[in-house]
Design a protein around this nucleic acid. Sequence first.
DNA 1: CGAGGGTTTGAAGTGCATCAAATAGTGTGG
DNA 2: CCACACTATTTGATGCACTTCAAACCCTCG
Lengths: 240, 240
Amino acid sequence: MCATTEQELRQYPLFRNCSDSFFTDMANDAHVLKTSKGQVLFLHDDPAERFYYISSGWVKLFRETLDGAQAVVDVFTRENIIGEGALFEDNIYPYTAEVVESGSLISLSLSILNRELQSNNQFTNDMLGFMARNKRQKDKEIEHISLQNAPQRIGCFILGFLNKTEGEATIHLPYDKTLVASRLGMQPETFSRALGKLKVSTGINVKGATIEVSDIETLVSFSCVACSAEFPCKELCSKC
Amino acid sequence: MCATTEQELRQYPLFRNCSDSFFTDMANDAHVLKTSKGQVLFLHDDPAERFYYISSGWVKLFRETLDGAQAVVDVFTRENIIGEGALFEDNIYPYTAEVVESGSLISLSLSILNRELQSNNQFTNDMLGFMARNKRQKDKEIEHISLQNAPQRIGCFILGFLNKTEGEATIHLPYDKTLVASRLGMQPETFSRALGKLKVSTGINVKGATIEVSDIETLVSFSCVACSAEFPCKELCSKC
DNA sequence: CGAGGGTTTGAAGTGCATCAAATAGTGTGG
DNA sequence: CCACACTATTTGATGCACTTCAAACCCTCG
């Protein structure tokens, strides 16, 4: 199990410059979690000792207000880490993490991660780039919220899953529509209606969770008018 | 001049762990800019060689879409740096920077900054923390956009300028109301009306750019219901 | 004093949220 | 394998918040 875990960590791009002892110690200390939908991994404002590498499944990060409203910060799937942000927040988790689709996680030690950050400048640099791109991504999202309308935001979300820039393509929504809606900061009803409008405007085809884009360029010209970046806007996400 | 510049850089918290040669080289290469309102420092997507330390005045960062809409990313004043983000974006400025209130800047070398990041792990760590807090701040703003209404967002903005947590206080809006409005992602008209509502709801007093808060706690209970953080939410801004 | 930009106010429109209910889809136990 | 229960999704009707367009007002500064 440890060997497999170490394997998995070694191929995670963010860790590409980490030391051998980092991988060894991490793997020795790690444990694999089989998670099921609805499971809460940690609560925001809780003290943190572990972070998680997602091997499979989906996890959403969110925060809640006193009056029960929920703000979904992000939704992650395999080959991503979550909870590492606590290192920069006095070892307090800044968000609540809940499994939205069952899968497998690796629980990892924050202190070993921190030790590596203290001692390995190349890794610290990689992490810095990672964080900076994360921040840019957030800026982009703030821009989208104020400049794009609901159908355009959905179009942009779909475009983010395509691996080509023209012609036709088919994608599966990664998780249920209600979650996509909250990820995009809108109500499920609004999502449903907005998807309908997008269908009419761009000729996409929706069958359940499957979406067929007959002409990517039509979708681009519909969604990207209200964005300051040019498609294909390089994904500023967690990959590095 | 160089001596003064070095002085100024040395007291900037983010640079507290930088090497002596960093300060010397930076100061030798630096030049002071007297800026006037409307001046554009750099354009988004332009190649970057310099970043800027703000000694005085105000600068806004924004991006524009094809159809001319503008998204204000942030507004900065003295004791802040701007343009350093280009280091993580292939040396391309991610935003346009425009002076909105005349003042004085120090133009600094990105490559010297980068050199220090490569060689000084303590500084890289500080920068990483700085960036992580920046990202958290953005998350908070995204949350605010979706959970708070216009008057609450203004209340939250005002609270961010107070230096105490109860009783009464007086602040001056840092820049003109139209800019505050766009910083908060709303129209000037909406801002004006929302400020009116805030006045009625919380008993604040508005005289031009001066705002008197008679009871901070009233303002808190009005604004912070729709926020997942508890007042006084430690400022996650550029200070470190 | 007069010009021009910032700010406020009014009236009307739009988009999204909300509440309610119908429909489709999914998993479970019989 | 089917029927039921439960959840996800869609659709309809209505309301509210913010935007938009237009005009008045105010304030500053040459």
